[in-house]
């Protein structure tokens, strides 16, 4: 129960940081609030017993903050207040309420916090993948870290697809940012 209150405190912190990040007009303070969400989330991953993700999140957050600050610093017109047109706001808020109603209905079927979903599923089904991953990761792959065994042995196709997506997104950013195009007059000459 004490862990539950601890996580609740962290979630309230994250929600407050998100509200400030959405509502402030200054872009730099908004970016800093995103950093607060990221580092708070990293601490929360650590207490949720996921040290792999905590390390990755804290390193990714530093890099993401560098990229975001690079985009917002030394720009003149960053103070853009106000909203989009009225009809769009009404429509999007109505969509948000509909999604919230459906989503909160869906949470009733989930097990209590503290009971993993695979334990709840094991009571009705015979085969649950996560139990095998925990039980056989050391004897069948030799890796003590079950997460490494899952992403690089049992579900390595997932990692291959991830490498492809990362390659494609970086390639897209390079193509967008490069200065000279293939048909520019300098290269034709």
């Amino acid at each position: 129960m004490s862990m539950f209150c601890f996580f609740l405190f962290f979630m309230i912190f994250l929600v407050i940081a998100a509200l400030i990040a959405v509502h402030t007009d200054n872009l730099l303070s908004s970016v800093i609030c995103v950093g607060a969400i990221g580092f708070g989330g990293s601490l929360m991953f650590l207490f949720l017993r996921a040290p792999d993700i905590a390390i990755t999140q804290i390193a990714v957050e530093v890099l993401g903050l560098i990229i975001l600050i690079r985009a917002t610093i030394s720009r003149d017109k960053t103070f853009i207040s106000g909203q989009r047109e009225f009809f769009g706001i009404v429509f999007s808020v109505a969509v948000l309420f509909a999604i919230s109603a459906v989503g909160l209905k869906g949470f009733e079927d989930l097990p209590e916090f503290g009971t993993p979903a695979f334990v709840a599923a094991a009571e009705t089904q015979e085969i649950v993948a996560s139990e095998d991953y925990i039980e056989q990761s050391l004897s069948r792959t030799g890796a003590a870290n079950a997460v490494a065994a899952v992403i690089l042995d049992w579900r390595a196709y997932d990692t291959l697809g991830e490498a492809t997506v990362l390659f494609t997104s970086i390639l897209g950013a390079v193509v967008i940012l490069r200065k000279e195009t293939r048909n520019s007059p300098e290269t034709i000459k």
Binding site: A50, I53, T56, I67, A129, V147, S169
Partner: peptide
């Protein structure tokens, strides 16, 4: 704890950095 969501989220975090750089 369950290792399967951790493995999926681990790849999703790195992909989110790539897509962030593309959007920026």
């Amino acid at each position: 704890v369950d290792p399967l969501p951790q493995a999926l989220v681990l790849t999703a975090i790195v992909i989110s950095l790539g897509s962030l750089s593309l959007m920026i």
